[in-house]
Each structure stands twice: as structure tokens, then as C-alpha cells.
Design a binder for these strands. Structure first.
Length: 817
DNA sequence: GTTCGAGTCGTACC
DNA sequence: ACGGGTACGACTCGAAC
């Protein structure tokens, strides 16, 4: 039988001691299929140079007799083959060691610690990645698959009967189809509401499900209420059973949640255990599995469980404006839609109408999750295709893993054997090396400037890596010379696979970006974005201690050459008669002076012609005005803090408190308005009047407390803090009140007024109250620590000393402005 | 008792 | 453990006076 098939998920099982891969996906006519494919795992033994043919044959014989006895299998070496390979760009002879079970690869490799063998490699590549690499059964690509249909077959212990799918096929041949049509996955979103925040502590009150034409809330609480989407059950156990049934009957390709790795699925598991209910969600009726690790991941056999929070936080967050990655904020930004409001303090004494609201709230969470999944599907799809890893991993891995996986899946093109993952000691060693010198930042002169041009280097660090061939495999004794603090290093002129792959990534990014401009489809946007993210992460990858291709020298050289490049460019711009006012890493700001924009563009062309390799400088924008301020500590110009007004009247604010989430909203808003006024008028008059008005309001307590709440993230467990700052004290307070505290939470508090005799004696942390705690705010604190600091150094540019003004008024006992 | 600088922490920039 | 370094600024805390 031959079917059209698209792989969505991968898994594997052991049968008679051997590994078999299960590729799970859809057929061309939308049926669910599992393809069973045999697979022979292997790893490499790299020989020392100059080993004789005879000796090599002897070693291969020695390898052939190695075996490992595990509990219920004996793993043997099936085959050895001698190959000419490359390792870190150098020619090597390597023995391919094919074994009968992947799980014992490491143990077999361990038995080969012989002198003649220089290195053993690739036993640390996961079986499924290995399968995808070798057989090229790429995720989310269409294939024509032929094979034998298993139906009530005895094969593999009767596996087909235990799988809840339309087709089980024992694969004979896969052929990637020339025509790759669209694939629309069936997505089901879910969300739970529970009595307690702590996993499994209280019961689950309701579960919502949201798919195409499928909206449900399952509950066992307050059942008289009739809302058409609410379905009532006897108890929690029955609700849980029904949840599993609904998921199964919907037959989703993707089950989507938001923070469901960390909350919803672990909670469901805990309650199912408590109620002795089996959550047999998998196509093989297995329950969700939880991987151990720093962060647990929850997987379901045959259904890709996607925790959108994970995907967004690890890949997309840097391009979002949202200050937190809460479902509410992310949905607002990406969908323009919010969560419903519900007051959880009502949970103790719910009235009829409250349940009504609660059910609607629960359904909306799933609706938002579904819409987010739908919106991000194209991005997940393209990431999976570009990196060639399964969707499950794509939505959980961080950028470093993505870069590494992309490399691993492309090494075959260079005939390269993969470097190993660093072990604990190696990681400790790398981390112990400390920092190397990074980017150059030009200290600006505080002031208000007019007619500013910003230029920046496109994907600067990636371009530097490509242009100068910086990588582990090209680190050499001679070649390009780069001076670092630790000494001089060299990189060979012969192109290495890392820079070469990166060059290809940059080229593709350019190509798809161009195509997107001509034809703005979501697909092209997602594809160009995937390449952009990969390109931008390549530099960080080489400096990352956990990387297989970690190369501190390459990372340090990248930063050094970027510094050199930007400094040279600054000099060239100065030579053209411009005043350079600012520069940070890959951008340069200068004043137009008496030159026109057209002249600047001509100079830009000239600068580009002189740049080496693929280095490229582009126009970022022209700005009508810009303001740079002084540091509060020393009075010199502050780096990474400026505001600009472009010719279209749009304001861009960098680094100021306005864009910092740990300042109260009043200070942020006041500062933002002051910056806007000053940039638009070029004067401080209006701004000063406005600030005076705000201060008066504050002194009269006419400002709402909500505007004075300070938010700060708890980044680790309370016990790990050495310094007890105000937000840690606030978190302790919450803990005492029995409120849920966990790392990653935003802690909200305000600084409250204290008795006169204690004034000045108490630390800030001794004066804080939780945001919803009753009390009056401390006017002096907010004046002196939030409002005046936020606008002081902006007004200072115009010769106004707000702090002095405020102190004088205070001394004159006028009390207010 | 006050002053000051080092250290911790959170957050932003690129 | 799950890119990098640079930078600002608040707050705490202990040494120095």
C-alpha cells in the first residue's frame, strides 16, 4: 500500500532488543497514521592518524565482539565500516559502529577506550534526531510512503491493535513529494481552573476545551447553571474521565496549553492519580509522560502537546513588547484580545452569577490559547522545517539548541562527524573562564540634538563570523590574526562549516525577506523570521558554555572584530565632517549638520563599498530631534538611555525608566510625557509646568495608589537571596498570608507612609506594603525616589535643577510647588 | 551616628 | 544548564571616619 503522509511526531519502541521508530502523522486524506520503521543506530570511533590497515582490521574485529547485557536485552555490534570522514574540518579515518540498541551506545563506546582510538563520537545524539538525519524523514514534509498495512497483525507483538489510529503501516519506502502542499493541523486548546495554585493540592474545578466548532467547559461544580458550553458531571473523577474522552474523540494533532508543562498537565496528572482515573490520552492509550529536568515537559504519545508559553518565552519573547509573558498580555499584543476578568478572592463564597462568570473566564483562556496556537502555527511549522527537529522539541528548545540542531542536521553535507556535548567538568571549566571583552559603547554628551542620522550594521556579529571565518574548526596556528586580551589567535582562511552554514542562513534570510516584501504571506514572514533568529543566535552559541561547538576564542574574536569595525567606521564618518554623538555595538548616530539626507546616503554607499566580506551598513532612520541625559551617579553622559523623534513624529525611547517595568506607572508616564514634550517642542517650558502639576497632585494625595505600585520579579526562591530587597520582603509577606509564591512571579508593592519619628530610620523594605494592602503612600518617597529621578536628568539638559527646586520649596516650608 | 563604596539584584540595550 | 557582554540605578550592608 502507498499513502501520502506528513510526519507530525516521532517516537520509538523496543522489540526483541531492537529499536523501531514510530512516525505519527496524517495521510493525504486526513486520516491518522503511524508508520513503523526499522532503524539501526550507530556511532563513530575516530582512529588516531597513521594506524595501519592491518591494525585497523584488528580493531574492527575487537569492536565486533563487544556486547552489553542490559536487564532484558543483550546489545551487540551488528556491523563495522571504515569511512573517510572529517572531524572539525580535518580528514580522519573513522569506524562506523552499528549497534542493535541505541540505549546501550554509550556503554559500548565506553568499552573502546583503546590507544588506537582517538575519539568516540555521536553516541550522544538522540535516537529520533539520528533517525531524521539519516533517513531524511523530515518533520512536516509530505512523503509518499509504501509498506505493509498492519491489521490485527502479530508483528511487533500485535502493536497495531493497541494503536488508536486509522492506519498502521510497516514502512518499506519513503519518498519526499515534489509538491509540498499545505497542512492544517487539528488544534485543541485546553485550560484548567483549580482550587489551589499548588500542584494537586486542591481539586480541579473545571476544564475548558476549545477547537474548531468545539467549545466546552467540563465541571462538577454548581451544576444547575445552564450555559450551553458547560457540561456537568457527578464529581471530579467523572470530569477527568470525560476530559480524556473528549480529547481522544477530537483527534487533535496538537494539544495546546499556556504554561501547561508547569501547571495544567501536572495538575491533571496529580488529580487523576488521586481519583484513580487513567488519563489515557495517547494514541496507545498511555498517560502523559513527564520528563525530568530543570523544567519538566509533558508529552503525550501521538499528540504533540505544545505549551505556547514555552515556545514564546524561549524563542519569541525578545521580539515582543509585553512586559510579562502572561496569557493576558501576550494575547493582547498578538491577538488584540484579552482574558475575561474574574476575582479569585470570591472562590470561597461563590454565588450563582459568579460561577457563570467563572465558566466563561475558563473558556476564554482556552479560546485565547487556541487563537495563539493558530497565529503562531506558521512560525512553529517553519522552525520545525528549517531546523528539522520535531514540533515537540521545537516548541521547547532554547535558541542555543536550535542553532546546534540546525548544525547537526546539516553536518552530512560536510561529511563531518559531530563534536560531543560537553560534560559536567568541561562546562565548569568553560564557565570558570569568565567574561571576555564585548561590545563598544560610545559615551554620549548629554544634550538635546537636532537632525540625527542612525546607521547600523545588518546582523553584525553573524556577518563578522562569516567574513573572518570564526569558529572552532577554523581556529588555527596561522591565518587571520585577531588580538585579544588573552593573546593573539588565528583563524584559517579555508572556510569552515560553521561560518559557511551561517552565510547560507544569512543569504536565505535576505532572500525570504525580499520575497516577503513582494508577497506578504505569513509563510514567508515566518520563514524569514526563523532564519533571522538563527543568524542572530549564532554568535551567542559559540560563546555558550553548553555548546558542542563552543569556541571562546571565536566569540571573543567576533566581539573584537566588531569593535574594530565600528570604531573604524566612526572615524570615517567623522572624516566626512560629521559629529558622531553615539554608538552602541552595531549602530552609529551622527548629526547631519549642513549635509543633506541625500548626501548621507551617498556616503553610506561609499562606506559599504569599503567594508570587507559580507559586512553591510544600512540606514536605520533620520531623526528630527534626540535627547541624551547624564548618569545620576557621576553626571557624565549615560549610555543606553536616549529618546528620539523621527520625521514622521514617532518617538523611540530606549533605556529610560519609561520602558522599565520595575518603576511605578506614574513615574513612567510622567517621564514619557516629559520626553514627548521636550522632543516635540525643543523646549522644557511645558514639561516643567506639567511636572509641577503632578508634584502638586502627589502632595495633595490626588494620585491613585495603583499608579504608585512598584513591580519587580522574584527570580529565584526566597531562601536563595543574599540581599533582602523590598520585593523579597514583599514576597515574604505574601508567603505569610498563604499566597502562592513562585520564581518568575511579579511582586507588587508600594512604599507606605511611616510615623514621623521613624522617618529616615527605616529601610525601604521596612516601609513597603503589598499592592492590595490598606494604607497611605509615602509622598516623600515617591517624590524623591520616583518622580524627581525620572525627570530630573531630562530637565537638567535645559539647565533646570528640579531636585534643588524641590528642596528649596521644602526649606521655605511652602510644602508644595 | 554618618558617609561611602562594594556587592546584590533587576532590568534594559544591542 | 539550556546564546553573549555592557550598562544603569536602587537598595543593603559593613567598614571607615
Amino acid at each position: 500500500m502507498e499513502i501520502e503522509f506528513i510526519p507530525v511526531d516521532y517516537d520509538y519502541f523496543d522489540f526483541q532488543g531492537r529499536n523501531y521508530v514510530e512516525v505519527i502523522g496524517r495521510t493525504g486524506d486526513g486520516k491518522r497514521a503511524v508508520i513503523i520503521d526499522s532503524f539501526e543506530p550507530y556511532f563513530w570511533a575516530i582512529l588516531k592518524p597513521g594506524i595501519s590497515e592491518k591494525k585497523t582490521e584488528e580493531i574492527m574485529r575487537r569492536i565486533m565482539v563487544i556486547k552489553v547485557e542490559a536487564v532484558n536485552r543483550i546489545t551487540r555490534v551488528l556491523k563495522t565500516e571504515l569511512h573517510d570522514k572529517k572531524f572539525l574540518g580535518k580528514d580522519v579515518q573513522a569506524i562506523k559502529v552499528v549497534i542493535s540498541n541505541y540505549k546501550d551506545g554509550h556503554a559500548i563506546a565506553d568499552q573502546m577506550g583503546w590507544d588506537e582510538i582517538e575519539k568516540r563520537r555521536e553516541y550522544d545524539i538522540s535516537l529520533l534526531s539520528r533517525y531524521i538525519m539519516d533517513k531524511k524523514i523530515l518533520p512536516l514534509n509530505w512523503y509518499k510512503v509504501s509498506g505493509e498495512v498492519l491489521s490485527n497483525s502479530e508483528e511487533f507483538g500485535g502493536i497495531d491493535a493497541s494503536l488508536d489510529t486509522d492506519i498502521v503501516l510497516k514502512a518499506e519506502k519513503f519518498e519526499r513529494m515534489k509538491e509540498q502542499r499545505d497542512f492544517e493541523p487539528r488544534i485543541l486548546a485546553f485550560d484548567i481552573e483549580a482550587e489551589e495554585f499548588e500542584i494537586g493540592k486542591g481539586s480541579i474545578l473545571m476544564i475548558s476545551l476549545y477547537g474548531k466548532n468545539f467549545h466546552k467547559v467540563l465541571t462538577w461544580k454548581n451544576c444547575p447553571i445552564k450555559q450551553d458550553f458547560v457540561e456537568c458531571f457527578e464529581d471530579e473523577a467523572e470530569m477527568l474521565e470525560k476530559f480524556a474522552e473528549y480529547v481522544k474523540s477530537y483527534q487533535p494533532d496538537i494539544l495546546a496549553g499556556y504554561f501547561s508543562d508547569g501547571f495544567d498537565l501536572p495538575y491533571l496528572k496529580a488529580r487523576a492519580e488521586k481519583n484513580k482515573v487513567r488519563l489515557n490520552l495517547g494514541l496507545d492509550n498511555s498517560q502523559p509522560k513527564f520528563s525530568r529536568g530543570v523544567v519538566t515537559s509533558a508529552s503525550i504519545f501521538g499528540i504533540v502537546h505544545v505549551d505556547l508559553f514555552r515556545f514564546i518565552s524561549s524563542v519569541f519573547s525578545q521580539y515582543l513588547q509585553s512586559e510579562t509573558l502572561s496569557l493576558n498580555e501576550v494575547a493582547s499584543e498578538l491577538l488584540g484580545e484579552k482574558k475575561h476578568e474574574f476575582d479569585f478572592s470570591k472562590l470561597g463564597q461563590m454565588k450563582e452569577g459568579d460561577w457563570h462568570d467563572f465558566f466563561a473566564y475558563n473558556l476564554q483562556d482556552s479560546a485565547l490559547t487556541w487563537k495563539l496556537a493558530d497565529k503562531l502555527w506558521q512560525d512553529m511549522l517553519e522552525f520545525s522545517k528549517v531546523i528539522q527537529e520535531p514540533l515537540f522539541d521545537i516548541t521547547r528548545d532554547r535558541m542555543a539548541s536550535h542553532v546546534e540542531n540546525h548544525i547537526l542536521h546539516n553536518l552530512y553535507r560536510y561529511n563531518e562527524i559531530a563534536e560531543k556535548r560537553p560534560l559536567h567538568d568541561e562546562i565548569a571549566l568553560r564557565r570558570g573562564l569568565g567574561k571576555y571583552e564585548g561590545a563598544f559603547v560610545l559615551q554620549p554628551q548629554p544634550g538635546l540634538y537636532e537632525n540625527i542620522c542612525f546607521l547600523d550594521f545588518t546582523s553584525m556579529y553573524a556577518s563578522v563570523i562569516v567574513t573572518y571565518n570564526l569558529s572552532l574548526s577554523t581556529l588555527a596556528d596561522k591565518g587571520h590574526e585577531v588580538d585579544l586580551q588573552e593573546g593573539t589567535v588565528h583563524f584559517s582562511k579555508e572556510k569552515g562549516f560553521f561560518p559557511e552554514m551561517l552565510e547560507e542562513i544569512i543569504k536565505k534570510r535576505k532572500q525570504y525577506k525580499k520575497e516577503y516584501k513582494e508577497n506578504s504571506t505569513n509563510l514567508l514572514k515566518a520563514r524569514s523570521n526563523a532564519y533571522k533568529l538563527l543568524a542572530n543566535a549564532a554568535y551567542g552559541y559559540q560563546g555558550f558554555f553548553g555548546a558542542r561547538y563552543y569556541c571562546r576564542e571565536a566569540a571573543a574574536a567576533t566581539a573584537a572584530l566588531a569593535r574594530k569595525s565600528i570604531l573604524e567606521t566612526i572615524e570615517k564618518i567623522k572624516k566626512q565632517g560629521f559629529e558622531v554623538i553615539y554608538s552602541d555595538t552595531d549602530s552609529i548616530a551622527f548629526l547631519l549638520g549642513d549635509k543633506s539626507e541625500k548626501q548621507v546616503l551617498e556616503i553610506l554607499k561609499k562606506l559599504n563599498a569599503e567594508l570587507p566580506g559580507i559586512m553591510e551598513l544600512e540606514l536605520e532612520d533620520f531623526y528630527k530631534r534626540g535627547i541624551f541625559v547624564s548618569k545620576r551617579t557621576t553626571g557624565e553622559g549615560a549610555k543606553k538611555k536616549y529618546a528620539l523623534l523621527n520625521e514622521k513624529g514617532k518617538i523611540k525611547i530606549r533605556g529610560f525608566e519609561t520602558v522599565r517595568r520595575d518603576w511605578c506607572s506614574l513615574a513612567r508616564e510622567v517621564q514619557s510625557k516629559v520626553l514627548g514634550s521636550v522632543l516635540k517642542t525643543g523646549k522644557s517650558d511645558d514639561a516643567l509646568e506639567y511636572v509641577k502639576g503632578i508634584i502638586k497632585k502627589l502632595q495633595k494625595r490626588e494620585i491613585e495608589k495603583e499608579e504608585l505600585v512598584i513591580k519587580s520579579q522574584l527570580t529565584k526562591p526566597i531562601s536563595e537571596y543574599i540581599a533582602i530587597s523590598p520585593h523579597v520582603t514583599a514576597a515574604k509577606k505574601m508567603l505569610e498570608l498563604g499566597l502562592p509564591i513562585r520564581p518568575g512571579m511579579m511582586i507588587e508593592y508600594y512604599v507606605a507612609e511611616t510615623k514621623a519619628k521613624e522617618k529616615g530610620k527605616l529601610l525601604v523594605r521596612e516601609r513597603i506594603k503589598l499592592s492590595n494592602e490598606k494604607g497611605e503612600y509615602d509622598i516623600e518617597y515617591y517624590l524623591g525616589h520616583q518622580i524627581i529621578p525620572a525627570v530630573g536628568n531630562i530637565l537638567e539638559v535645559f539647565g533646570i535643577n528640579l531636585k534643588e527646586m524641590a528642596e528649596k520649596k521644602k526649606q521655605m516650608k511652602l510644602g508644595e510647588f
